[in-house]
């Protein structure tokens, strides 16, 4: 364990002014721009935004799992004392699964369809935990038991297609948490599961990380879900983090017009469907030259300076930051 992880003063994860482009046939796509955030130990951070806002790419960048077409002209990602952007692939592979792990949406395809689920948990332990095969099997069964899979010894030999989606996601969590990583990145972990299973899976994730003081980055398009489980929320729009802050403060008094719109578009359970607002317009084409504020075309509060001046970073105190010239 490196020293940086032990000291509470240094954040577990720091993303600083990250700029990321994808080289494609139709030119450069400016996927992420000026992303900055920090994450402390034991904290659950939600990253919320609509599809295409760059949430998943940011997660893959944190894992050091970027496509070769990705280019990072500026910025850095530090995790547990490591520079995730310059680290060798070999040492990254040793870090992944042991110190930082990730779970995905559609758990059934995320697991190897023709390998027994227990063996897949065992593979992670054999790779990182430096144990014998027998010991790894024992610990894999214990990991399955920890995510409350009933009858784990028998389920060890099951194939993913024999398990429900919820059980598959539990297996994924068992795999990800098998070596007690410091950080779990959960990329839409409940998408495709039914509502009751969603709650079970999210409770399980929270319980797992709380017991080992690990942190979570929860990537979701569901603001309500993030509101329920996260300590802090970062709202992303078209490759920018437009607002980041404590969950309660942000949900009760959003500062960025986009956050306010998102909250207005989130069903609360009381209103009828007619009371739900939709957000007009769509994400800008990220291949073009973009104005400093990428929300400008969808914003009714825009000022003249929005189109010309670089985005400000307005600190409202208590680590609540909004990037807008005319916040609410």
């Amino acid at each position: 364990m490196s020293a940086a992880v032990m000291t509470e003063s240094v954040p577990l994860l720091t993303v600083e002014d990250l700029v990321l482009d994808f080289r494609t046939r139709s030119g450069m796509v400016h996927v992420l721009d000026g992303i900055s955030l920090t994450l402390d130990r034991g904290e659950i951070l939600g990253i919320v935004g609509e599809s295409g806002s760059g949430k998943s790419v940011l997660a893959y960048a944190m894992m050091g799992l970027l496509d070769p077409a990705a280019q990072i002209p500026r910025g850095g990602i530090r995790f547990a004392g490591r520079d995730m952007l310059t680290e060798s692939e070999r040492s990254l592979a040793e870090t992944r699964g042991r110190e930082i792990a990730m779970i995905f949406q559609s758990p059934r395809t995320a697991l190897n369809p023709i390998r027994r689920v227990g063996a897949q948990v065992q593979d992670v332990l054999l790779r990182h935990a430096n144990v014998s095969k027998k010991e790894a099997r024992k610990r894999a069964i214990a990991a399955l038991a920890r995510v409350r899979i009933p009858d784990p010894e028998r389920r060890f030999d099951a194939y993913p297609f024999e398990l429900s989606g919820g059980l598959c996601q539990r297996v994924m969590i068992a795999m990800a948490m098998a070596c007690n990583p410091y950080l779990l990145i959960a990329d839409e972990p409940t998408t495709g599961l039914d509502v009751t299973t969603q709650a079970v899976v999210m409770d399980l994730i929270r319980e797992q990380v709380r017991s080992s003081n690990a942190s979570v980055v929860l990537i979701t398009h569901d603001l309500a879900l993030a509101g329920e489980y996260c300590d802090r929320i970062a709202v992303m729009h078209a490759g920018h983090i437009v607002e980041i802050g404590g969950t309660e403060a942000m949900l009760s008094a959003p500062k960025h017009p986009y956050t306010a719109r998102l909250i207005g578009a989130t069903p609360g359970g009381h209103e009828s469907i007619r009371d739900l607002a939709s957000i007009p317009g769509s994400l800008p084409d990220l291949r073009r030259d973009l104005p400093p504020c990428r929300f400008i075309d969808r914003c009714e509060r825009r000022l003249d300076c929005c189109a010309t001046d670089a985005l400000p970073s307005v600190n409202l105190g208590a680590d609540h930051i909004v990037r807008c010239w005319n916040p609410l």
Binding site: L65, F104, R127
Partner: peptide, 8 residues
Amino acid sequence: RTARALGL
């Protein structure tokens, strides 16, 4: 992708 994300 999962296998890579878990560092196998």
